[in-house]
């Protein structure tokens, strides 16, 4: 069965120049400093499914989100949307219309000086989906109702809404261009849990009803487990393990995935204590040589310190780890 791929990332990298200004750098005789936010990442998102990327801050997941909608151009590798290179896809309004994005911060993602009606209508106007004001207003009303708000809420300004309601407005705006593919960058991490449940339920309902495809970015493994079909775990700009979510949660193979799963506090943890792994995430400006996880990895050996692990297919899961390749369980 050939998979129907909406978005494909092939060895995508994105580097940022974080050097000091030229004059200061030259005076201090410093070399240029490059931050490898994303370093050779490959994945594919099948139509109607959810791929989640999970990782700690600085792992590059938000950069991937922005690469996926073309806000950043890749420094290397390629991203294809509906079979076309992302830059070419974005140049065509009809393809660009089919992708949109939901953001993290409901307080920053809506223009405070615009009425909700105009915020939601902007994509409709930008893509000229409807022309008459009456049609646009009717459509905005329908969209607001679809996300659980009232059509009359369009007259208000964003500050009149709570965080969860604003996130609904954000979703209504994302849906107004009638997209098929949504990039969701931490859509619930600024929300309280009860509101998070409302938004996650809404996103799942919409996915089923409209056949949406999600690229879901989150640091919260429980949320990711609830939402995803496939899951990619990122560390320092790379995907260390990717595969069906159920498989990874049932049988995590990469030591970093195991660490993350062990570190999550869970309601079933009452009275139990975790065994935290020491160490911290190194700076992506100066990543460790070899496998970037080796300084914190309980299974690291000499090979891990020098040789970058290649992606290995283990059943349905792809994993980048020497220990998994060699079947080692101890260093």
């Amino acid at each position: 069965m050939a998979e129907d791929i909406v978005l494909l990332a092939d060895q995508v990298s994105r580097y940022f120049d974080v050097s000091r200004p030229w004059l200061q750098r030259t005076l201090a005789r410093e070399p240029k400093q490059v931050l490898r936010a994303v370093d050779g990442v490959s994945f594919r998102v099948a139509r109607g499914s959810t791929l989640s990327l999970v990782g700690e801050s600085g792992c590059g997941k938000s950069t991937v989100a922005r690469l996926a909608v073309g806000l950043y151009t890749p420094s290397g590798g390629e991203i294809r949307f509906e079979g076309e290179a992302i830059s070419a896809a974005r140049a065509q309004p009809d393809l660009r219309r089919r992708m949109n994005m939901i953001f993290q911060d409901p307080y920053a993602s809506l223009n405070p000086r615009w009425r909700v009606r105009d915020i939601v209508a902007e994509p409709i106007r930008a893509f000229k989906l409807l022309s008459s004001t009456a049609d646009i207003n009717a459509r905005v009303g329908a969209l607001l109702t679809q996300v659980g708000l009232a059509a009359a809420d369009g007259e208000k300004f964003p500050h009149e809404f709570s965080g969860g309601q604003r996130q609904r407005i954000s979703i209504a705006r994302a849906l107004s261009s009638e997209p098929e593919f949504l990039v969701c960058d931490e859509p619930t991490s600024a929300l309280d849990v009860s509101v998070q449940a409302q938004i996650l339920n809404l996103m799942k309902d919409l996915q089923q009803r409209l056949g949406l495809t999600y690229l879901f970015i989150s640091h919260n493994l429980s949320v990711v487990r609830h939402m995803s079909d496939r899951l990619g775990v990122m560390y320092l700009g790379r995907i260390v393990e990717i595969g069906p979510a159920a498989e990874i949660f049932a049988n995590p193979r990469h030591p970093y995935t195991k660490l993350l799963l062990d570190a999550i506090p869970d309601l079933d943890m009452v009275g139990r204590s975790r065994t935290p792994v020491g160490g911290e995430v190194p700076s992506p400006i100066n990543p460790p040589p070899g496998c970037p996880f080796h300084p914190r990895c309980p299974l690291a050996n000499a090979r891990c310190k020098t040789e970058k692990p290649q992606v290995l297919h283990l059943g349905t899961v792809e994993i980048a780890c020497h220990a998994a390749e060699e079947g080692r369980t101890t260093a």
């Binding site: 849990v193 449940a197 429980s222 949320v223 487990r225």
Partner: peptide, 9 residues
């Protein structure tokens, strides 16, 4: 509140 928290298990 408890029911709205997604579970890992």
């Amino acid at each position: 509140l408890m029911g709205s928290i997604p579970s890992l298990t």
